[in-house]
Amino acid sequence: MTELVLTPNIGTADDFYADLLEAHEGLSKAESDALNARLILVLANQLGDPQMLRAAIAAAKLPRG
């Protein structure tokens, strides 16, 4: 099985980040929350593999300490 990638993997990091912020521009907190939730679900479907998804959730919780 492929490991969850936790090293730099986005070729154009600054562009992605700018796109992400732009998508939220002008949205209310509720609209932004909804967009984030939809985005997580879209990305999760792309990832697909249950073990990878669990690893991603665990990684998002940040390591202890």
Binding site: D33, A34, L41
Partner: peptide, 13 residues
């Protein structure tokens, strides 16, 4: 609240 946000996101998608 977050559970509702995800639920609605699933339905919208």
């Amino acid at each position: 609240d977050m559970s509702r946000i995800f639920r609605d996101a699933v339905l919208d998608l």
